[in-house]
């Protein structure tokens, strides 16, 4: 049963890359305005969960409901138009496009996206380097661009994969501020994150993924009590 303010509901999701069975029955849901993280070790299936939502894996079974619509049989390019913005782990900045072209690339999927001027106000570095080749930006700037790109499209469900990976602490802090601001604006975020210290203070709930299963769900108010368990599961 999909409740009214659920933006994502995944039930018994199995995903395959060729013969490899990666997800073994993922169940999760994300409510409107929530920031939910997928925690887990490398190779546990967190990124594959996001890629499955975007129909970027070989084969999927189960159910993926977005904004009330079943998407398992939808072609990949139709899913974004349900208001979903995806930011891949490798950031997906196109080297053949400059910063502004990268920013303008995704089509508008909803009418209330940020304007280019607003984006340049939030990320002034992007404005300064708007005619530079996308991949010539620093890692932090590329990450900003990857997030800005989907904010401009109007997506209100953001799937963000390891956005802090390899970035300097000052950039990580800036990303945290951006995510909190997006939460304030009512956007829904499903975040794959390795950096638990980054995720813990900003997330409403956490799912721990292990071997393609959800093995634990932790609400914000349970965080303190369940920290030893999380440390064990995450191998901290």
């Amino acid at each position: 049963m999909v409740s009214g303010n659920e933006k994502i509901r995944i039930q018994n999701l199995h995903a395959f890359y060729g013969e490899s069975h990666i997800l073994h029955g993922i169940d999760l849901h994300v409510l409107q305005g929530e920031l939910v993280t997928l925690l887990g070790r490398n190779g546990s299936g967190r990124s594959t969960t996001l890629r499955s939502i975007m129909n970027m894996v070989g084969r999927r079974t189960g159910s993926i409901n977005i904004n009330g619509s079943e998407t398992l049989d939808l072609p990949a390019h139709r899913i974004a138009h349900l208001g979903v913005g995806y930011c891949p782990e490798e950031r997906g900045i196109f080297s053949s496009l400059n910063v502004e072209e990268n920013l303008l690339l995704p089509p508008t999927v909803r009418s209330d996206g940020m304007s280019v001027d607003e984006i340049y106000e939030v990320f002034p570095n992007l404005f300064e380097r708007r005619f530079s080749q996308g991949t010539r930006l620093s890692g932090g700037e590329q990450q900003m661009l990857a997030i800005a790109r989907i904010l401009r499209s109007g997506a209100n469900i953001l799937l963000l994969d390891e956005i802090t990976e390899g970035l300097a602490p000052v950039i990580v802090k800036k990303l945290g501020d951006v995510l909190l601001e997006l939460k304030k604006r009512g956007l829904t975020v499903l975040l794959v994150e390795q950096n638990f210290r980054f995720a813990a203070p900003i997330a409403d709930r956490h799912y721990v993924v292990e071997h393609g299963h959800i093995v634990e769900e932790v609400r914000k108010d349970e965080l303190e009590a369940k920290t030893p368990l999380l440390n064990t599961l995450l191998g901290v």
């Binding site: 975007m54 129909n55 970027m56 072609p75 990949a76 390019h77 139709r78 899913i79 974004a80 138009h81 995806y86 891949p88 997906g92 196109f94 080297s95 053949s96 496009l97 072209e101 303008l104 690339l105 995704p106 089509p107 999927v109 989907i150 499209s153």
Partner: peptide, 25 residues
């Protein structure tokens, strides 16, 4: 042009283009 940007980006990562909502096929 924008169409050209789609073509250039499509040569790099067609799957990500689809994830952005562009009808790559």
């Amino acid at each position: 042009t924008k169409l050209g940007a789609y073509l250039r980006a499509g040569t790099e990562d067609p799957k990500l283009m689809q994830a952005f909502g562009i009808n790559v096929p």
